[in-house]
Amino acid sequence: MNATPTTFRKRLAVGAVTGLAVVGGIVGVSAYAAPTAVAEAEPVDAIAVAEVQEDGVRASNSLTHEAAMAVLDAAQEKAAELDQRVTVTIVDRDGNTVAMVKGDGAGPQSPDSAEAKAYTAVSWGQATSDLTNAAKGNGPSIADIPGTLFLAGGVPVVFDGAPIAGIGVGGAPSGDIDEEIALAGLAALEDLEG
């Protein structure tokens, strides 16, 4: 037997009140125990998918997994050679972290520092040590941009004349040491076979 819309609404209202009573911590028995009708689902229209033409698509370059691992390994090897405990971070062109290694004994601030340096380097396409003067001064400066850090230790990765990634190192007692470690990671990219 099919329920009429009015009957269905009554059953739904009674069921809702009973449900609220149970949720509220009151246990009760419904005064109306007739079987309830299950409403048939309305068919859902398919969502249209737009096929984008070439004019609406931009290709971007990024480091491969192999390249990112080579950077991390070379940088951590340099850190060990210098007896430093650091974090090395790689971000993509959009500033998203794609790889990070926190070395044994690296300080708790080092991941944030490394990520901010990598982000800053890829954002401006320059080493963070070259940007420190631009971040100084009285009044607003580029240092006011959230997520940036203008201490040495961040270097950009450039491909075909444009930055595609940033390498950041944090945790050494001096930005110059962080930068030396980051440059060792960058140099590893030159050794990769293409």
Results as ranks from 00 to 15, higher is better:
Ala3Asp: 15
Thr7Arg: 11
Phe8Arg: 13
Phe8Asn: 04
Lys10Pro: 01
Lys10Thr: 14
Ala13Leu: 12
Ala13Arg: 11
Ala21His: 11
Val23Met: 00
Val23Ile: 07
Ile26Tyr: 05
Ile26Trp: 07
Val29Ala: 05
Tyr32Glu: 12
Ala33Lys: 11
Thr36Gly: 15
Ala39Gly: 06
Glu40Lys: 14
Ala41Glu: 15
Pro43His: 07
Val44Lys: 09
Asp45Lys: 06
Ala46Val: 04
Gln53Trp: 05
Gln53Pro: 04
Glu54His: 07
Ser60Phe: 14
Ser60Pro: 02
Asn61Cys: 02
Ser62Trp: 04
Ala67Met: 08
Val71Tyr: 01
Asp73Arg: 13
Gln76Asp: 07
Gln76Ser: 07
Gln76Phe: 03
Glu77Ile: 12
Ala79Ser: 03
Glu81Pro: 10
Leu82Ser: 02
Asp83Pro: 00
Arg85Glu: 12
Val86Pro: 05
Val86Thr: 08
Val86Ser: 03
Thr87Phe: 01
Val88Ala: 04
Val91Pro: 07
Arg93Thr: 11
Gly95Pro: 14
Ala99Gly: 07
Ala99Arg: 13
Lys102Trp: 02
Lys102Phe: 02
Asp104Met: 07
Gly105His: 11
Gln109Ala: 09
Pro111Asp: 05
Asp112Gly: 14
Ser123Arg: 14
Ser123Trp: 00
Trp124Pro: 08
Leu131Trp: 06
Asn133Gly: 07
Ala135Val: 05
Lys136Gln: 15
Gly137Trp: 03
Asn138Ser: 06
Pro140His: 07
Ile142Gln: 08
Thr148Arg: 09
Thr148Leu: 00
Gly153Thr: 09
Val158Thr: 15
Val158Gln: 11
Phe159Pro: 03
Ile164Arg: 05
Ile164Cys: 09
Val169Gln: 00
Val169His: 01
Gly170Thr: 03
Gly171Asn: 03
Gly171Lys: 03
Gly171Tyr: 04
Ser174Met: 10
Gly175Trp: 00
Glu179Ile: 01
Glu179Pro: 01
Glu180Gln: 15
Ala184Lys: 02
Ala184Pro: 04
Leu186Asn: 09
Ala187Phe: 00
Glu190Gly: 14
Asp191Leu: 02
Glu193Asn: 04
Gly194Arg: 02
